[in-house]
Amino acid sequence: MTTRATPGLDGVQVRGMTRSAFLLRGALAAGGLYGAGAVAPFVGRAFGAGGGGDIAILNFALTLEHVESDFYKKAVAVKGLPPELASVLHQISGHEDAHVQQLTQTIQQLGATPSPAPKTSFPALRGAAAVLRIAVALEDAGVGAYNGAAPRIQSPALLAAAGSIVHVEGRHAGALRELAGKFPAPGAFDKSLTQAEATAAVKPYVTG
């Protein structure tokens, strides 16, 4: 195997992220793909191979999912939004709820305790622009968080599952940015985020 540099990758960020976030997302997605009952065995193996803080990372991801889920519950209740936006928000809300549910089940199946839902607080969502501003920020951060963490996932099955979720995050982000009048992708390559950066992105909305 060559060890030469790969100049084509120069424009692509490869950031270190905790693999915990990946495992979390992966486990969640795997449950969705193959059924919650099927996910436990290989998740357990992956955790055995990965050691240490995987549960903590799963719980970190669960926290992020809770923030997203809470946001969309509020967003779908906003009156007077354009029908297309309202429909998209409703769809995304369902996806985030599914992620939360699957993640919670996975953590429980691993014999751990899911983190309680954080207390969240969002600015007054008056009108489409206010809703879209936060939605786009949350989804772009979600894409970056997954993409940043995925290369540290060791189990191919969990990696595939993480890919399954980030794919959907990317669709959310693209659709919302288009509705916000932005280009769907900020650039040709999505930037990855560290866990600290992902945390910072949701911090304004977490109050406890």
Partner: peptide, 8 residues
């Protein structure tokens, strides 16, 4: 991955 989500 960076390309994948742009395609999505």
């Amino acid at each position: 991955l960076a390309i994948h989500t742009v395609e999505a």
